[in-house]
Design a protein around this nucleic acid. Structure first.
Length: 443
RNA sequence: GGCCCCAUCGUCUAUCGGCUAGGACACGAGGUUCUCAUCCUUGUAAGAGGAGUUCGACUCUCCUUGGGGCUGCCA
């Protein structure tokens, strides 16, 4: 175990978005890679905008992504006493002073300001951005205590980092300018300055920065849409870092082993939902069979489908058919509903293209007769039977109408596997029913 | 306006002075196949512009342009 300590320090003023959570991912990975500790600190000093709900959502999303932290959650508001003690020290040493101010929204009162040096250069060596420097005169004095006596972010953030013995601050790019201020506070307080790593932003598909109000960027939204946490995790990691050998889909273990702050990119990355979708498909394909099966059963059941009376082997066969065809787990109940109910929808285009043809009702009935004679009714036997009919020609003309008649759609599992799963009786009934409806013109 | 940062295919990126500029996603074509998906093969597509350094610049320097961040009693 190293003595490296990093923290993810979000402010719970809105739903946690992908930019935030990527900072958490990088912090977590760095801690796990170095054998250090990953801390979670809730920066809730903005009393007006922080909400318990946001904290709950944040923790929920972190758990979903497997971002576990190593010590008790640290609430910034719980450390106010210490913040103010430090302010007193700064006041005593002359590095802070009180002043009468009028805020933007018209409040007038006494605030405590931190005094920046008026000359010299402030510099730090950012792990991702390299050497950063700024003339002290270019940084204004700034408020650290509000007129109501509550500490402001800058002082709270630094004091908490001192108290939590944070060694590496890994955070968003939007904090670079603050770093010049914070370094001065660390020094004024006689504390060691941590190492910094500033992460570039993730921009949206229009190339513009995400804002907290950007609903689509909320982490929970991805879960609701059927994305796998590991896929999101992997994709977000790739947005700003890669192992350098071309690998993209990485196991959590590989990520931990290979992650390196030095190789994090300086440039902003654009979020590409299509690549995330591809990544998700990769993860679905790689899911252990048993996990996919469990998801399938749960999702089918909670979609209100009658999933009773099915053997384990049946489920396994169904899962085998569905897994490589599934990009989003949330699509599953819809895509396999016809296995469980007679009340499935017919895709009008499929009906038009495959069923509304001369001779199709007769064909379906003929096949129903043939299938009924097969015992046992297996995929292989079904295929054999259709092969005989098609006499060495392509099976398309027989296969396509059957597929639509029993499932209502043009795409899906292998036809004969599907027929076996449905069972002889159901298949025969649906073929006859489709034939009848075609004749009656009700399809 | 001031200060700071950034710039390779449409997107994510490799390259750390030798490049016929590689990979992935997306898109196109072909193959496998009962559909879809998977899988395999394959195509289109990039170094913002201008100076300089150098035998040689995508790689180093400067300028321009473009983008972004900060400039709160938000974080």
């Amino acid at each position: 175990m190293s003595d490296i300590r990093v923290r993810f320090a979000p402010s719970p003023t809105g739903k946690v978005h992908i930019g935030n959570i990527r900072a958490a991912i990088y912090n977590w990975l760095y801690a796990r890679h170095t054998g250090g500790r990953f801390l979670l600190r809730v920066e809730d000093t903005d009393l007006e905008r922080s909400t318990p709900e946001a904290i709950r959502v944040l923790i929920d999303c972190m758990k979903w992504l497997g971002l576990d932290w190593d010590e008790e959650v640290f609430y910034q508001t719980g450390n106010v006493k210490r913040h103010l003690e430090c302010v007193d020290k700064l006041l005593a040493s002359g590095r802070a002073y009180k002043v009468e101010k009028t805020s933007r929204d018209g409040k007038t009162g006494t605030v405590t300001m931190f005094r920046m040096p008026k000359e010299g250069v402030i510099e730090f060596d950012d792990i991702v951005k390299g050497k950063m420097s700024k003339k002290a005169e270019d940084v204004q004095d700034f408020a650290i205590v509000r007129s109501d006596g509550s500490p402001i972010f800058h002082i709270a953030n630094v004091v908490d980092d001192i108290d939590q013995r944070v060694t590496h601050v890994i955070r968003g790019d939007d904090h670079v300018e603050n770093t010049f201020k914070h370094i001065e506070i660390f020094k004024a307080l006689g504390a060691p300055v941590p190492r910094y790593a500033h992460l570039s932003m993730i921009v949206n598909q229009q190339g513009k920065p995400y804002s907290k109000r950007d609903g689509a960027a909320f982490v929970g939204e991805f879960r609701d849409q059927g994305y796998l946490p590991d896929a999101l995790f992997n994709y977000l990691l790739l947005l700003g870092w890669n192992p350098g050998d071309g690998r993209e889909v990485l196991s959590r273990e590989e990520m931990v082993e290979l992650f390196d702050l030095e190789k994090v990119h300086v440039t902003a990355a654009r979020f590409d939902i299509k690549k995330l979708a591809w990544m998700n498909g990769e993860y679905v394909k790689r899911m252990p069979e048993a996990d996919f099966l469990r998801e399938l059963r749960e999702r089918a059941a909670s979609a209100g489908l009658d999933v009773s009376g099915r053997a384990d082997g049946w489920w396994k066969a169904l899962a085998g058919q569905l897994q490589i065809r599934t990009k989003f787990l949330s699509d599953m109940p819809g895509n396999c509903a016809f296995f469980f109910t007679e009340d499935f929808a017919f895709d009008p285009k499929a009906v038009e293209k495959r069923l509304k043809k001369e001779g199709v009702p007769e064909l379906l009935e003929d096949l129903a007769d043939r299938f009924e004679k097969i015992e046992p009714f297996t995929a292989a036997a079904g295929e054999e039977s259709v092969k005989e009919l098609s006499a060495g020609q392509g099976m398309g003309p027989w296969v396509h109408p059957v597929r639509v008649a029993v499932s209502g759609r043009m795409e899906g599992p292998g036809l004969f596997e599907m027929l076996e799963l449905l069972g002889k009786d159901v298949v025969a009934r649906r073929l006859r029913s489709a034939a009848a409806r075609l004749r009656a013109g009700t399809l």
